[in-house]
Lab assay of single mutants.
Amino acid sequence: MGFKLLSKLLVYLTASIMAIASPLAFSVDSSGEYPTVSEIPVGEVRLYQIADGVWSHIATQSFDGAVYPSNGLIVRDGDELLLIDTAWGAKNTAALLAEIEKQIGLPVTRAVSTHFHDDRVGGVDVLRAAGVATYASPSTRRLAEVEGNEIPTHSLEGLSSSGDAVRFGPVELFYPGAAHSTDNLIVYVPSASVLYGGCAIYELSRTSAGNVADADLAEWPTSIERIQQHYPEAQFVIPGHGLPGGLDLLKHTTNVVKAHTNRSVVE
């Protein structure tokens, strides 16, 4: 069995187990497998329904001669939608809004960016022009300005110390501490036991640490421990890039980060 097929099978099995364990909360999309990078042309966006009122959005972007996937989250909030992270750029984010209108038909009224990198804030200006209120932590807003990236308009308070959590509509926002970046936030959907790890969490097929220019490698494993301790009931975990899975993604990420750190020390 090929690795790609095995990865998709694991996603399907995880979703099936969740649907059985929580039949009222989960209505997993039966329309197909989780979209992969090879299936999404740059400039297009796919939506994948995880649970009743919960979707991931998947886009792709060219970077350094390669094409990478990027995940975000959409959560229903009454007759409105909360968006977590842009679709990595203005063109993708405009396509995301169009796809949401086509498939869901509810307005996106608020959006949260989970850290300051372009795959999370690139497209904020498109959201703002569409009347979406954009939010991020003060740290993310400051770092985005320093980096020359787009800056969300509103500040999220109460997320300055490791372990801080605040309720934001249908989700809980959690600051686990520094990891992929010093400002990275985690998003949890309690009604569906869905954990969105953003770039602080890796997919299972990833074996290298990737972009760690703004990471705190020493603190990252401790931050992941905080996530595990705060959300032990999480059933569906979405990484910032690639295929979702279960809580095993947290341990896998820790292993990859520690291996990278150990290699760096040896070198």
Rank of each mutant, 00 (worst) to 15 (best):
D85Y: 00
K91H: 15
F3G: 07
A130K: 15
N255L: 07
I201H: 02
R46G: 12
N92G: 14
Y12R: 13
A21S: 09
L204G: 11
E267G: 11
R76G: 10
T261Y: 05
D85S: 01
V45M: 06
S7P: 07
A21H: 13
D118I: 14
L204E: 07
L243P: 04
I224S: 02
R141V: 10
E203Q: 14
L47C: 02
M18N: 15
L73K: 01
V256W: 03
T14C: 07
I186E: 01
T109R: 14
F174P: 02
E219L: 08
L97H: 02
V124C: 10
S31V: 13
E157L: 13
H57S: 12
S162F: 15
T109E: 11
V257Q: 03
V171P: 00
V166D: 04
A213K: 09
G210D: 12
L127M: 06
S56V: 13
G210N: 15
H115G: 00
A130I: 15
K251I: 05
D216L: 14
A200M: 14
I50W: 14
F116R: 05
A200S: 08
V266L: 06
P190S: 05
V124Q: 11
V187Y: 01
A129K: 11
P190C: 04
P232A: 11
S162R: 13
G123S: 03
P244L: 06
D52R: 08
R226V: 14
F174K: 00
F168D: 01
T222R: 10
L5P: 05
V11R: 06
V108E: 02
E172Q: 12
I227C: 01
V237T: 05
P176C: 01
R46F: 13
D64L: 13
V187H: 00
S161A: 11
H117N: 01
Y34N: 06
L6Y: 09
E150M: 13
S27A: 08
L217Y: 15
D85N: 04
K251R: 08
V146K: 13
A90I: 11
N184V: 01
R167I: 14
R263S: 09
S191W: 08
H252S: 06
L96Q: 03
G72F: 04
R167E: 07
T254M: 13
A98G: 09
V194H: 01
L250T: 03
G210I: 15
V28P: 14
T86Y: 03
G89M: 01
I224K: 02
G105S: 15
A136G: 13
S137P: 05
R226Q: 05
L5Y: 15
V194Q: 00
E44C: 13
T207F: 13
K251H: 15
L185K: 01
R263Y: 08
G169A: 04
G2S: 10
N211E: 13
L250S: 01
S223H: 04
D52Q: 06
G240R: 03
Q229E: 13
Y34S: 12
V146E: 11
A111G: 14
I20C: 08
A66M: 12
F63Q: 05
D214A: 09
V265C: 08
V54D: 02
A234T: 09
A218K: 15
Y231Q: 00
H115A: 00
L204H: 15
P23S: 08
V266R: 12
V112D: 04
I20R: 13
T134W: 02
I100A: 09
V112W: 03
G198H: 02
G242K: 03
G2Y: 14
S264M: 05
I84D: 00
A213L: 14
R206C: 11
L81H: 02
L173V: 13
L159T: 04
T140P: 02
L13N: 15
P107T: 14
E145L: 10
S16A: 06
H57Q: 11
T182W: 15
G240A: 04
A165R: 13
D77C: 05
S137I: 11
Q49F: 10
D118T: 14
I151M: 14
L243H: 10
H260M: 15
A51M: 14
A51I: 15
T182G: 11
Y175F: 07
S16P: 09
H241N: 01
D64I: 08
E203M: 02
A15H: 05
L106V: 15
G131E: 10
G245Y: 03
G2E: 07
F63D: 09
Q49I: 05
A25F: 06
V112I: 06
A178D: 06
A90E: 11
T93L: 00
G158C: 04
I74M: 14
G122H: 10
V132S: 03
P35L: 07
A209P: 12
S191Q: 07
I58N: 05
A133N: 05
A21F: 06
T153A: 09
S162Y: 15
E39S: 07
G78S: 10
F174R: 02
E233S: 13
V194A: 06
G78N: 06
E145P: 04
V108G: 02
V54N: 01
L81N: 01
I238T: 03
Y231R: 01
V28K: 09
G53P: 05
I58G: 03
A66I: 14
Q229F: 14
S160T: 13
Q235W: 07
T86M: 03
H180R: 02
P170R: 09
D79T: 14
Q103T: 14
D214P: 08
T261F: 15
S223T: 07
I104F: 05
T60W: 06
L9E: 08
P138V: 13
I58F: 13
Y68P: 03
N92H: 07
Y12E: 06
L217V: 09
D77F: 10
V121A: 03
E225G: 11
A165H: 09
P41H: 08
C199Q: 00
T254E: 07
T140S: 12
P152C: 02
S62H: 15
T14E: 10
E172H: 05
G123H: 02
D79N: 07
V112G: 03
P23I: 13
V11S: 09
F116G: 10
V67I: 09
Q229P: 04
A94N: 14
D85W: 00
G65S: 08
S193C: 03
A90R: 14
S16T: 08
L106W: 12
I17F: 05
A218E: 11
V187D: 02
V121H: 01
V171C: 03
V132L: 05
L143N: 13
T207Y: 11
S38Q: 12
I227L: 12
A51S: 13
S161K: 11
I104D: 00
L82G: 02
P152E: 02
K8F: 04
H260Q: 08
Y34R: 09
A213R: 11
T114R: 01
G198L: 02
V45K: 03
Q61N: 11
K4N: 05
V126N: 05
A15S: 10
L83S: 02
V187M: 04
D125M: 11
V11W: 10
H252L: 03
Y12G: 11
P221K: 14
G148F: 14
S38N: 05
V28D: 06
S205K: 11
R142I: 15
G158D: 14
H57Y: 04
E172A: 04
P152F: 06
P152D: 02
P232Y: 09
N211F: 14
I186N: 03
S16K: 07
A165S: 13
G43M: 05
E80K: 15
N211V: 11
L24P: 12
I100K: 01
S155P: 06
W55T: 02
G65A: 10
Y135N: 02
G198W: 04
V257F: 08
V112C: 04
I100V: 10
A144V: 12
S193G: 09
A165W: 13
S7D: 15
